[in-house]
Each structure stands twice: as structure tokens, then as C-alpha cells.
Design a protein around this nucleic acid. Sequence first.
DNA 1: CTCAGTGCAAAGAGTTTGCATAAAC
DNA 2: GTTTATGCAAACTCTTTGCACTGAG
Lengths: 139, 139
Amino acid sequence: MKPDPTQIMTQTLRDTGVRVTRQREALLRVLTEAQDHPDAAELHRRARVIDDSLSLATVYRTLSVLEREGVVLRLALENGGARYEVADAPHHDHIVDLDTGRITEFRSEKIEQLQREIAAEMGYEIVHHRLELYCRKKR
Amino acid sequence: MKPDPTQIMTQTLRDTGVRVTRQREALLRVLTEAQDHPDAAELHRRARVIDDSLSLATVYRTLSVLEREGVVLRLALENGGARYEVADAPHHDHIVDLDTGRITEFRSEKIEQLQREIAAEMGYEIVHHRLELYCRKKR
DNA sequence: CTCAGTGCAAAGAGTTTGCATAAAC
DNA sequence: GTTTATGCAAACTCTTTGCACTGAG
């Protein structure tokens, strides 16, 4: 039986002096179980099933805490609001299917390397980056 | 004496049956003269100098027409609102200086190629993409 | 017990829209 | 003359915030 990722996260939070409330536990559970990339409203909807007192304001506040603590990542895709994912997998970029909205993850070490070279040439160090491919199924 | 890019654009618009108004001419002029990547409010401020009746609503409406016509590109960077640039240069990506906010453009044919390969492997065709490097000056 | 976290409602920022008027073609 | 574009103000979406109260440590 493998360790519950939510357990690990709550411990991480407690270690930094961040309080773990009912609401935060509910959100963490929903986030770790999400196979997609939900926005704040959707996370609110899902977490309400676990804790029906949870407010949207708290969802936003908690998400920004979790982002600061490095537990979640905020995606800012082209249209609409921010979407979130747990930061448990190694870094990856995203392919957005323009027809279905489905998001696929990918990772290219070669591209990462090229990016670093380009930045270095201009005297820069990359702090973070975003690469999104907006695609349509080939036919 | 080289042709005024604004002239070319207005012709492009007229050809598609889009009316070229005082307001749109003012905006096009401001856009072509901009060396940076202004947001809607900034474009409004600058274009007002040429045509002081121009409203912010018209700026937004015009920008979306220009985007649809392929005359401008909308950048959706991480923080804040959309920023715009004229679509006269070949495609390029952006480096954002986290300390100064300055945006530098770059282009890597190798990265473009790798992106296409990755998308193709998953049965996708890239419609468009975004690559942004958020950087700090090395020291 | 204390202070960080919460719900609520109100406020902000950025953007869009309905409607009567203006002006491009 | 038609029909599209404009200005204004109001509406809308997403997100943040002030405040009194609650609950985690």
C-alpha cells in the first residue's frame, strides 16, 4: 500500500508552519485525484462534496498558498481563467486540443536544453517557462 | 522611401470589407510605432493623443477585429492583461525579464522543428503555440 | 489561548455588450 | 441610404480583500 499523496502534502505544509484545515484537506484530496486540469470554480464544486461549507474565496486563497509552497502549479492557458495541477510529476509542457479542450502533457529534454542555450546567449537565466502547443488531430 | 505599414494594413482591412475609421487608423499608427508590447489601456492612452474621442471599448473591439484579420497578435503573458504586437515580423517567441518586465523576442528553428515532431508523434498538427521564457539576468 | 484561516459580501481588474448616435462606403 | 462602427454606461468574469468570527496548533 503506497503512501497517500495528500498525507505527504499536508506534512509538507505543517513543516512550514502552514495550518492544515478541513478545507485545505478537501482541496488537496480533490487536486490529487483530478486527472484533468480544473479551474478554481471546478475545484470548488468538487471539494464542496467533501466539505460543503467551503467557499470560493478560500479556494483561491488556498491555491495561492499551495502554489507558494510549491505543491500546485498554476497554468495560464490562452482563454479563460487559471487552471491547476499538483506539482508531483517532473516538469512538463502542455498540448491543448483545440477541438476538445483536452490537455496532454509532454516533456522534451532537447527543447529544454535549447531554451537554456538561447537564454544564456542573451545573458539570461531561466527562472521558469511555458510552452503550449495548441493543436488539432491530424487526419 | 518605403511604404507606410499603416497604409498596407488599412488596405488589407478594406479588402475584407472592414471599415477604416479615424479610430482604427489611430490605433494602427500607434501599434506600428510601438517598440514595446503595450496592453489595451496603454494603446488607448497613446492613441488618444492622435484622436482624443477614442474610447477604451473601441480599442478592445478594434483589437479583436485586427486579431481576427491577422494584423495583430495578442500575447497572454502570466500576469495581468493581454498585450499586443503587430504581426509584421515572422513568428517568434518571447523572453520576459522578471525584474524589468522587458520583453525580448527570439526565434529558434530547431525548437519549432522539435515541437512539430512531438505533436506529430501524438497525431497532432500544431495550429499555433506559445513559448515564453521568464528569466533573470545572469551575474 | 493565540493567531492563522474562514465565510461572506463587497470591491477590483480586465474585458464585453446593449443601445442610441455617428460616419464609412 | 445602408450598414457598420462608435461612445457611453452597464454588465460580466475571474480574482482579491476587509472584517468579524472560527478553529488549528
